[in-house]
Design a protein around this nucleic acid. Structure first.
Length: 573
RNA sequence: UGCCCGAUGGUGUAAUGGUAGCACAACAGACUCUGGAUCUGUUUGUCAUGGUUCAAAUCCAUGUCGGGCAACCA
């Protein structure tokens, strides 16, 4: 029963032990419960992979449930986006798609039962007053003056709350637990509040809404969830979760499967933090609202929609989730690991092509002007089955500006006056001179080619140190390239303890747009399909802006570049 | 100065009383028609102090540091 969707971790150990002990009849049912008030991000992907992965690995199932108990922030748009993203990631909830809102009636009935049994009461304290009564972590609270309200009276008041007789905040339903508890969440937490706000799904049928702490365990219990996995900040809520489950048990409302009563248990793990980006929904929302990015799906965003548009694959993200593991340690994971997972996946799968981002004209003086020919190029050296393609060649080519230097350092393997390089898949050329404009800028590189080197080698077996990519000027298709870099310059922009807001650390160079050329076949690349532009990186035609006749490529991630690294380290000589 | 949780190389994670391992990153080399990929090698670690034990990253105690908790948010 050991799949490999989820690697070894303490949650897996717990589930394994539960199954071994035949707890809940040995079945595993998890759930992923997003609130539809924003887009899913890579941090959610970690949770999705855990929730669905555990179910998959133990032959169980995972429910998708919109945790929509707060009508003021939730919309249908987000529901659809969430479903799209989870499907894209590669997970399937089958028929088990739920809304918290669909349980409102049941929750209301349970609340009434709690009142009857003395577990809850209607409280008329204002939020401001409650602050005083609740006490602080270091000192016990004092009971609300309404704590001893008779059940009949609370029931009447609660029904009138539901009927809309009171204004927002005028009354609330409170659990009756322990005002002296060292755990603040046990000091008679609110179960229901009055909110005269229509719900995107339930419409205006309710003006009272359940709180998360009340709703969540009920949903889990009704659905027969065995393992309710959530993030660390809910750890202190666990006693309350268990309290509600106990009440459900008393009411005989725990689900039974094959005669076995299912008792949901909450387990907590650390959320994902990634270097040079942010994971807070609120902050992401702020980037969108302030138009610092183009939207939730801006390719620089850590949202799944953004990563998808950037060219990330579900496989890479799932592998990333597997590798980071699951612990209770609040870590800051290196973005380089995510990038590594993408490169690893794309290196295996992405077809190669040639593109020139910053063009410099190269003229082969001894190549006849009107002539042209094609060379065979390998589509993917990692996958022989991908075959080869024909790439057109002629007298005038574009090469990368970076691939030519007039006065190169010793270890520069590319083109320079008098130096010979290989044009990838084509032939050897030797630089014979340059053309310059009046300002002294090189406008073209002049070369002669060795006709015997056609195909990329020579009879005399002489070696060249460099191989550079190119496109034939006459055949090239113009293209826009969007070169993305990390969104922030600070490793942990979410940390504002130094007084600087995260938006102050947005990387001004996170997007650079350049106009260049691609080989002809790339004009037909389908949006979203990955390609490696040789020696540059992995790209994909933009999902939004690429269309027939308009080539727009997003750079997903660069290739590892040891030359650039050496240059940066100042070791070029 | 209450309650809860955590601490293993630069980063992330494994070892469940018995040789501290893996991955990423970094560095070095080999190979190469991508300065890519691949392969080989190197550097760096159990928060501290006690205790239990033949044996402690692991169990216990104390301390230190970090995180969470005082929404009618989730």
């Amino acid at each position: 029963m050991n799949g490999d969707n989820v690697g070894p971790n303490f949650i897996r150990d717990i589930v394994e032990e539960d199954v071994r002990a035949n707890r809940d009849g040995g079945i595993v049912v998890t759930r992923f419960p997003p609130e539809p008030n924003g887009y899913l991000h890579i941090g959610h992907a970690k949770a999705v992979c855990l929730d669905f992965g555990m179910a998959l690995d133990f032959g169980g199932r995972c429910h998708l449930r919109m945790d929509d108990t707060n009508p003021s922030k939730e919309t249908e748009e987000f529901v659809e986006a969430i479903k799209t993203d989870i499907r894209w990631l590669g997970f399937d909830w089958g028929d088990h798609f739920y809304y918290s809102a669909d349980y409102f009636r049941k929750m209301y009935d349970i609340a009434e039962e709690l009142i009857r049994h003395g577990h809850a009461y209607v409280c008329g304290l204002s939020q401001e007053e409650w602050k005083t009564y609740r006490g602080v972590p270091t000192a016990p609270g004092t009971p609300s003056p309404h704590r001893d309200r008779p059940a009949d009276e609370s029931l009447d008041l609660f029904r009138r709350m539901r009927a809309g007789e009171f204004a927002d905040g005028e009354l609330c339903l409170r659990s009756r637990i322990d005002m002296a508890s060292p755990n603040i969440h046990f000091r008679d937490p609110v179960l229901y509040r009055i909110l005269h706000t229509p719900h995107y799904r339930a419409g205006d049928s309710w003006c009272i809404y359940p709180m998360y702490d009340f709703a969540h365990p009920i949903e889990d219990a009704l659905e027969g969830i065995t393992h309710s996995l959530c993030t660390l900040e809910f750890e202190v809520h666990r006693p309350l979760y268990d309290w509600v489950i106990d009440r459900m048990d008393e009411l005989g409302m725990l689900k039974s499967v094959n005669g076995v009563k299912i008792r949901p248990r909450q387990r907590e793990f650390a959320r994902l933090n990634l270097s040079y980006t942010i994971m807070s929904k609120r902050k992401l929302q702020q980037l969108v609202a302030e138009k610092r990015v183009s939207g939730w799906d801006d390719p620089r965003m850590p949202t799944l929609a953004g990563l998808r548009r950037r060219g990330y694959t579900p496989e890479a993200i799932r592998e990333f989730a597997r590798r980071i593991g699951v612990t209770k340690f609040e870590s800051l994971t290196d973005m380089a690991l995510l990038e590594h997972c993408l490169r690893e996946d794309l290196n295996r799968r992405a077809p190669r092509a040639m593109a020139v981002l910053r063009p410099l004209k190269l003229v082969i003086e001894n190549y006849p002007d009107g002539d042209e020919e094609t060379f065979d190029a390998v589509n993917n050296p990692e996958d022989p089955a991908a075959g080869t393609r024909k790439v057109p060649f002629s007298r005038e080519l574009y090469i990368e500006r970076d691939d030519f230097m007039e006065n190169p350092p010793a270890k520069f393997h590319r083109l320079a006056p008098g130096r010979e390089v290989r044009l990838r898949y084509a032939c050897y050329v030797t630089c014979t001179g340059v053309e310059k404009d009046s300002a002294g800028n090189v406008t073209a590189v002049l070369c002669k080619f060795d006709p015997q080197s056609r195909g990329g080698g020579t009879p005399d077996g002489r070696r060249v140190k460099g191989t550079i990519h190119w496109v034939s000027a006459r055949h090239a298709v113009p293209a826009e390239f969007r070169l993305y870099d990390r969104l922030f310059t600070k490793e942990n922009p979410a940390d504002e303890s130094d007084g600087s807001p995260f938006v102050d650390h947005i990387n001004p160079a996170s997007l650079e747009t350049v106009q260049g050329w691609v080989e002809p076949l790339m004009a037909f690349a389908a949006p979203g399909t990955p390609v490696q532009f040789e020696r540059l990186g992995y790209f994909c035609p933009d999902l939004r802006d690429a269309e027939p006749g308009k080539a727009v490529f997003n750079r997903s991630v660069t290739l590892r570049d040891s030359w650039a690294r050496a240059m940066k380290a100042g070791k070029e000589d």
